[in-house]
């Protein structure tokens, strides 16, 4: 059994009595691609926001890489190696593409900021657009830039919130290749609606429903799971 890089116990988030995430236990195996799925409003984004530190939990603990990070602010978690890319593209729209990635790279300290940044851009095929203002990129390119920012932090854990949303099929193929290439050095946790992507990429899948964990397993196990079918088909 491979090492667990992150686990959560009893993770809970309530908003004014609404249970967004309720008592979730969660294990993430190092080096794997783990997908988080569930119907709309199942609490997926809230859950990964708890992991990344964007919001603080009402109860429960989170351990990452052997240390308790439950109370750490988001930026300290990033420093420990958790990178997060936003569901709604969150780039520096008014800054050049170069600066967007340079900001990610300079944070972890780099002797050759310029070459490193260009290399990171080349990895996602955006090096030709380095001087362009990020907000003027096509949507698919903005998504790629967002992923490039996440990757260029060399994280131990990369959390991707709906990375393929709005991407063309060809871009999705490129994305899948990119994600496969970063594992197993990087563990990947992704929220994804596109089931083809999930079934194709994921080693493990966790299903959330109404803020609670419904099931965890390999793609084959999840496909065969009755409870999951019910939740998805509303049957």
């Amino acid at each position: 059994m491979a090492a667990i890089i992150l686990f959560a116990r009893g993770l809970t988030k309530h908003y004014d009595g609404i249970k967004a995430v309720e008592n979730v236990d969660f294990d993430l195996t190092a080096g794997q691609i783990h997908a988080l799925i569930g119907p709309n409003g199942a609490g997926k984004t809230t859950f990964v926001s708890l992991l990344s530190g964007r919001i603080t939990p009402s109860a429960g603990t989170i351990q990452f890489d052997g240390a308790d990070i439950t109370r750490l602010p988001a930026h300290s978690r990033v420093a420990r190696g958790i990178a997060y890319t936003f569901q709604i593209t969150s780039i520096y729209a008014n800054l050049p593409v170069f600066d967007n990635v340079a900001l990610a790279i300079q944070r972890k300290g780099s002797k050759h900021l310029k070459t490193d940044t260009m290399a990171a851009l080349a990895r996602v095929g955006l090096d030709k657009m380095a001087d362009q203002t990020a907000g003027t990129l096509a949507y698919g390119h903005q998504r790629l830039l967002e992923i490039a920012m996440g990757l260029s932090m060399n994280p131990k854990l990369l959390i991707l919130d709906e990375p393929t949303q709005g991407l063309a099929n060809s871009e999705i193929e490129a994305f899948k290749a990119l994600i496969r290439a970063v594992t197993p050095q990087t563990t990947v946790l992704l929220i994804e609606h596109n089931m083809d992507v999930v079934m194709d990429l994921a080693d493990q899948i966790t299903v959330l429903n109404f803020g609670e964990k419904l099931a965890t397993g390999t793609p084959a196990e999840i496909r065969a799971n009755k409870a999951v079918q019910t939740a998805y088909l509303g049957g």
Binding site: R54, P73, H75, V78, F86, S90, L103, K108
Partner: peptide, 9 residues
Amino acid sequence: QRSRMLGYN
């Protein structure tokens, strides 16, 4: 927000 998630305090 983005800056925080890039690890800046």
